[in-house]
Design a protein around this nucleic acid. Sequence first.
RNA 1: GCCCUUGUAGUUAAAUGGAUAUAACUGCGGACUUCUAAGCCGUUAUUCUAGGUUCGAUUCCUAGCGAGGGCACCA
Length: 519
Amino acid sequence: MEMAIQEGIKKALRELELPEVAFTLEHPKDLFHGDYMTNVSLMVGKQTGETVLGIAEKVAKHLIAQNIEGIEKIEVAGPGFINFTLKREIFINELVTAQDPEWGNTEVYKGKKILVEHSSPNLFKPFHIGHLMNNTVGEALYRLAKSSGAKATPISFPSDISLGVAKAIFILLEKYGEDFTPENIAVLGDAYVEGTKRFDEDESIQARIKEIADNLYASKESPEWKIFQKCKKFNIEYFEQTVAKLGSEFDSYIYEGEAGIEGKKLVLENTPKVFTESEGAIVYVPEESKKLHTAVFINSQGNPTYEAKDLGLLDLKFTRYQPDISIIITDNQQASHFQVVVDAAGKINPDWQKNSVHRSHGRMSFKGQKMSSRLGGVPLVVDVLGAVAEEVKEKNADLSDGASNQIAIAAIKFSILRTQTGKDINFDPDTSLSFEGDSGPYLQYTAVRAGSLLEKGKNLGITPNIDTPVSGTETLERLIPRFIEVCGEAQKAWAPHYVVTYLLELAQEFNSWYGQGKI
RNA sequence: GCCCUUGUAGUUAAAUGGAUAUAACUGCGGACUUCUAAGCCGUUAUUCUAGGUUCGAUUCCUAGCGAGGGCACCA
C-alpha cells in the first residue's frame, strides 16, 4: 500500500511538472487524520516558493484522479499535509492473515544469527532487583530477535572464580567444614558478605584466601575445589529456577573464568600492537579524539581485569556462535567501560565492534518506603515478587497463587518496559507499580476479556467471521495490522517500549469499544 | 576538571523534525444494573532557561542551570 501511494505521488509530481523532492509518507499521530500522510507539498513549496496549500490541492487532485486501488479518501489538511484514508477491506484482508499463529513475525533480520546475552548472575550472590531490570530488558530483546526472522540464541555470562568467591569459600570451610553442601542461597550470600568483611579486617587470613583462589583457578583437587564445585552447581540451578519464573531460559553459558583466560591471551598477543605497558600493567589508550578513558586490561599482578574478561567474552561469543549481531545488556554504569572494550576489540577484529550492540538499562530506585523497609537493603527478586503478589491478592482474594504471581510479574515488567531502555525506574509501588490504567494487569485484563468473548462465542457455535463487518470496530481494524510495523520498528531500534506503547493504545481502543454496548 | 546520560501536566511516562504535545495516576463529575467494574464516559493541567538552524523544534546545534553515572589495576 505504501509503495502504491509513493509511486502515485511521484507520478503526480512528474505530470504536474513539479520538482522531484524527497518526501515522507507516514502514519499521522492521530487516526482521525487518516492512515497515511505526506509532507510532499511542504517540500515542493520550499523549492518553488509557491503556496503550500496550492501545491497540496493540485497534487491531491491529481492523486484522486489516479484512482489508486484501496484508497477511500484523499484530503488536504492542516498546514498542507495530504492525508490518505484506506478502504476498510484493506484492513479486513489483513485480519484474515492475523489468524495465523505465525502472524506478527517480521523479516527485519531474516536469515541472521542473533546472540543475546543478559541476566548474567554472580555466583554466591542472590538474584536481586538489578538483575530483574537486566532480565526484563534482555528477555524482551531476545523475544524481539526471535520474532524478526532471525535465529536468536539467549546466553548468560555467570561469574564463577574470583577473589570474592575465594573469600566466601574460606568462610564456608571455617564454619561448616569441607563436607558443606549448600541448601539455600542465603547461606552463600551471607558467606560472601562476611568473607569480604573479614578479608579487609584480618590480614592474617589473606594469604590463605589467595591460596584458595589460586587453587580454584588451577582446578586443583582440594577441599575448596570440592565446595566450589558444589556451590557452582547449586547457584546455576538457583539461577535457572529464578529466571524460569520470569519466563526466561538460556541456551548456554560462557563463564567469567574462561573469558578471563581468553581475554588475557588476546591482550598479550596484541601487545604492543593494541595495548601498551604502563606502570607494570597492560592498558589500552584510546585515541584522544574518541574521548574515551584509558583502561587497565591486565593488572600489575598479571591478572585480567573486567575489561580483559569482556574482551575474551566477545572473542568467545563470535568464535562459538558466529552471530551476525551480538547484543549485550548491562547497567548504565558500565556504558563507558564497555565503549572502551569495544573500541579495543575493534582493533583486533573489526567485526566484533561492528556487530556488537550494547543496550544499557537504568537503575531501579525506591521511593516507596513501604516496600524497601519491608524487604530491607537491596531487595531480592523473589521477595519483591512475593510482596507484589500479596498486594494483588489483597485486591482479589479469589485468585490462585499462580495467577497472582503472573499479575505481579506483569505489573513489574510493564513498569520497566514501558519506558525507553536506559532510563532509571522509580520503583514506587504506590505509583509506578499500578494495577490500573497504563499497567501490565490492564493489558492482561484486556486480553482475558477478549479471549473470554471468543470463548463464549465458540460455546454458542459462533465463529469469528470477517465477511460481514460490524459497525464500531473500524478503528480497531485499522490498528491491529500495525502490530507488525511496530514490532519491526522495535526490532530495528532494539526498543521494546514501542511495542508496549502500541499495545496500550490497542487495549484502550478495544475496551472503549467493548464498553459501548452489549455484543 | 573532562566525558556520557538526562530534564515534558501535581505524579509516572509517550511523541522516525510535522497538524490542537499524547496517555495513565490523583482530584471532581457521570453512565450501566449487561458479555470479567483491575473496565467505560466527561473534566482541569505540561515541553528547565537563553540563543541558533528550519516552512515547521519536546526532538537537531551552542551556552547556562538542575539530576544521575563514569574517569588506571573492583565488577
